[in-house]
């Protein structure tokens, strides 16, 4: 009997390792090297990382498609090997292969049947309408564009109102308007209480949809946390001063000019150092107009984290 409480993470992996053993080779390909991750229930969680970091292997591990070499995987309080747990998961694979000669309603009906749900033709039509395929209900899937197939895959993942949505590149091939629609649907699902686990190369997409992000590199989680904490600069601030300010005077106060006029950067690890720098600037006659922490976008966070990880790995190797 699986007891699930609100505090039980939706996904919890500990020391997850996966090595793909190949025939006629002594050593296998290591995809995951001891991964620890906890995804809170009800969160919109994004997994990002460079190619070959192990993202797809991780997703397959939490769905029971790939069997871990070592470590534990708990999903919705149980094992992903348990069909009752998988019945509560909606999954959209990266390259969903759909039967081209079927109609979308037949496909959704089959997925519903295999999920053990009663027939619900009206519900399936409503899902197709929700993902923007209302006009293509009568057409065969073979005639669908890539974006339409992705939408249908999303509709299939939404069947049965799952507690956990695992989406691998959900907006791949979808036009910008379509992406907005998909984003809206995902946000609605999160508001409904669904936990969203998103793997997307489109970092802007992850940034817009997710509230927590993990960065995976070389089979390990190298950084994880709330999105706002990750993108916030740790000690770098942006200050804008009124026109007429002396660049030399501000430079001696620790301010570095930015590209825009009147805008400067300053490094200050805490409030005392920051205020001391501002006092020096004011003493030099500068008038502060705006002050904010220098935020980064997710791309910068990813690049910085992965580069730092690579440098550490090189140091260890040396």
């Amino acid at each position: 009997m699986v007891t699930v409480t609100a505090s039980t993470p939706a996904i919890e992996v500990t020391n997850l390792r996966k090595t793909y053993n190949r025939a006629f080779r002594k050593t296998g390909n290591i995809a995951l090297r001891g991964m620890d991750l906890s995804v809170p229930r009800g969160s919109a969680f994004g997994l990002i990382g460079p190619n070959g970091a192990g993202k797809t292997t991780f997703i397959k591990s939490i769905l029971g498609i790939v069997q871990p070499t070592e470590g534990t995987v708990r999903v919705l309080g149980g094992s992903p090997e348990d069909p009752r747990i998988r019945a509560r998961i909606g999954y959209l694979p990266e390259r969903l292969h759909l039967p081209g000669s079927w109609t979308p309603t037949a496909f959704l009906a089959t997925v519903g049947r295999l999920k053990g749900l009663p027939p619900d033709a009206a519900g399936h039509l409503s899902l197709l309408e929700r993902v923007g395929l209302a006009d293509a209900v009568g057409r065969k899937i073979g005639g669908y564009s890539k974006g339409m197939r992705q939408r249908l895959g999303l509709a299939a993942a939404l069947i049965g109102k799952p507690d956990l949505l695992v989406l691998d590149e959900p907006t791949d091939g979808i036009d910008p308007m379509g992406r907005m629609e998909v984003r809206r649907i995902l946000q609605e699902e999160v508001q409904r209480g669904t936990t969203l686990f998103l793997n997307s190369h489109l970092l802007a997409e992850t940034e817009r949809v997710c509230d927590r992000v993990a960065i995976l590199a070389d089979g390990r989680v190298v950084r994880e946390g709330k999105l706002e904490d990750l993108v916030r600069g740790e000690s770098r601030w942006v200050a804008r001063f009124a026109p007429g300010v002396s660049v030399e005077a501000l430079g001696s106060a620790g301010f570095v000019p930015a590209r825009a006029d009147g805008v400067f950067h300053v490094e200050a690890p805490d409030a005392t150092v920051l205020n001391a720098a501002l006092d020096r600037a004011r003493a030099a006659g500068a008038l502060l107009v705006e002050l904010r922490r220098d935020g980064m976008d997710l791309e910068a966070v990813l690049l910085g984290t992965v580069s730092a990880q690579a440098m550490r790995a090189a140091e260890v190797a040396a």
Binding site: K60, L63, G64, I65, P83, R84, I85, R86, A87, I89, Y91, P93, E94, R95, L96, H97, L98, V111, L114, K115, G116, G153, A156, V166
Partner: peptide
């Protein structure tokens, strides 16, 4: 068992 189909089927609640 083709890529993109087998993952989808195995993620469904079937043995």
């Amino acid at each position: 068992m083709s890529p993109g189909r087998i993952e989808h089927l195995l993620a469904l609640p079937i043995q």
